[in-house]
Design a protein around this nucleic acid. Sequence first.
RNA 1: AGCGGGAUGGGAUAGCCAGGAGAUUCCGGCGGGCUCAUAACCCGCAGAUCGGUAGUUCAAAUCUACCUCCCGCUACCA
Length: 703
Amino acid sequence: MSHDDFPTDHPAVVTCGLPYANGDLHVGHLRTYVAGDALSRGLRRIGQQTAFVCGSDMHGTPVAVNAAEDGVEPREFAMEYHETYAETFPQFNVEFDNYGHTDDETNTELTQEFVRSWVDEGHVHEKEIEVAWDTEEDQPLPDRFVEGTCPYCGEQARGDECDEGCQRHLEPGDIEDPVSTITGNPAEYRTREHKFLRLADFQAYLQGFLDRIEGTDNAKNQPREWVEGELQDLCITRDMDWGIDYPGEDGDAEDLVLYVWVDAPIEYVASTKQYSERVGAEEYDWERVWTFDGERRHDTEWDDEWTTEGGDIVHVIGRDIIQHHAVFWPAMLRGAGYNEPRSILATGFVGIDGKALSTSRNRAVWAEEYLDAGFHPDLFRYYIATGAGLETDVDFSWDRFAERVNGELVGNVGNFINRALLFAHRNYDGTPDADVSEDVRDRIEETLAAFEAAVREYDVRTLAELSTELSNYGNEYIQRTEPWHLLDEDPEEAAQVIRDCVQLAKAVAVVMQPVLPGKAERLWGQLGEAGSVADVSLDTALEAPPETFDEPDQLFEQVEDDHIAELNEELQDRVEEASDDEDDDADEADVDLEPLETDRISFEDFEGVDMRVGEIVTAESVEDADKLLKLEVDIGHEVRQVVAGLAELHDVEELPGTRVILLANMEQATIFGVESNGMVLAAGDEADLLTTHEDAPLGTRVQ
RNA sequence: AGCGGGAUGGGAUAGCCAGGAGAUUCCGGCGGGCUCAUAACCCGCAGAUCGGUAGUUCAAAUCUACCUCCCGCUACCA
């Protein structure tokens, strides 16, 4: 079963992953929000009724922990970031129809409705689990309040995930040797009753869901593995105050709040609902999107079948939260009788100099920083949208930013608009009286078709490039026809050419609008058009522009080299600092190092170890063994035959002549049928061979 | 180790899902043109065995298998 092409006869909603309220926004976040914003504008442009919603993610232990450190209430702490986000997004022309937060009333009510629904349908059960407890503070330690050892891989783990080792999601009670992050004391486990959502109930459903989901490959492929394996119960409650209360009755679980990943995605629904309530259900009805025309469906046959009675839900997220959106979230929706997502678009990460952003090391380009530099938001939008495909990881670079802005927006688009409109204004006071030529009309229609196709394929990159391509065509057209000559030679032809160019300019305004909304609006004004370009349909690109308009001013301004050099230098300094930090860390604690042996040995014991300087004379591989080499090592007195596990790491041809250290009185052994009389010393898994740096004669004892 | 993503002229990228002349756009190099325009614009040239090996096919950048190398997941986090 496949989805209808956009525009569909149901409303759509585009959501962006909720920003978590404990840090500033950077270019990595913005990539996701720009993509979501451009897509929602594109959908609207092709006639799809669309809401674009988001909100701040307020709950969870990191906020509680950070608030406690700052000595403020979690709500106050989170609200501050929430307000910053709400102000920052519009500055990048990211305009949500509704921007709420997870701690508001709508979300609280809706979340509790979801949970009650799961309980009613029998998807929730209670289990006693061991919960880490801080004895000094006499309080439970949920998620990030506890650190310890991962039970699966033995690496350091914190809270609900094994972040240093195997990346597994950890359930409460899994962590071994727990330590409280509040007091630093060892924590003890106590038995508590918690609520669990039985994800296994949805296994068949989720497999079907993954077959029909649209979106980026990473979002479609990565969850498959999780859903094909056994789905563990998801613990949906936590022992803490900050969060939405578990909707228990008669004292049931009354001191529990819901896990942050329960109420966070429900904010997508809540935010849509708020929008719907604000504009009225006539204008936009949230229930036609998230439910089945107002109905919650719990029928079980639904597992294999599927229905298009709901609206089209499009999630734009970062690729770190694919699991939550492609596995937990659809199960949550299904359990509550709600509609499912149509598509999940997971954006790649933004890095700097080939490395991931590091907010704590300040190796990042911040939203604030970009705005302070004084660039128009649309320039960033264009750069980040065209730099690479949606799911590819990219590097942010001021140089490339300048290249694209100057080369494509200024030189190509801006210059075409300017020369076309200036020529038109000077010679005709506006749009010349002539019909658009067939070629130009065809070219515009082609672009409009490509626009529709790009939106349907969620291809923001192509969407962004359409305006450049059309301007490029315009520049060639002007050059080819040379209207400045035609003015005298063939005035009628000149009017025709300029008429075409003005039409092209108008078409550029219409197609550039999703990615460059601010600039499109301004161009719209330059064309003498009334109203907003955001409100017109695609076909408007083919309608005649106003007869008169004023002299245009420059749509895009050149980014100055000096300015870029400055920004580069600033960024480079920070990158270097961040790298230094990392090197320090590596020196201090290389996680791969084996612990030092604490048992000391006596000097006599050491004297019993006879190590000699030797030189490899011959090396050949041992039959049937992948890793083993048979070596002959000259240690002065004699030539020893030794078997060593070097085959995978060293080239057999290059070993002869290499000076090594041989443990000469190693007990004799026969390995793969070959006698071994010693041991070649090497460091680590890479078998870094020990050698001498001066010319100690062969057979010299190492002491 | 595991998982995901990637490797395409000098640099950055598109094309791959739905195989059909080796290829898109931007920057850079070389040569020319134009002068309406933001030292912009237009035309032409040079430059790549599409990471490697094998396979499927009439046909492979594209599909399959294996391999090599890079990046992320290691603190917050899109």
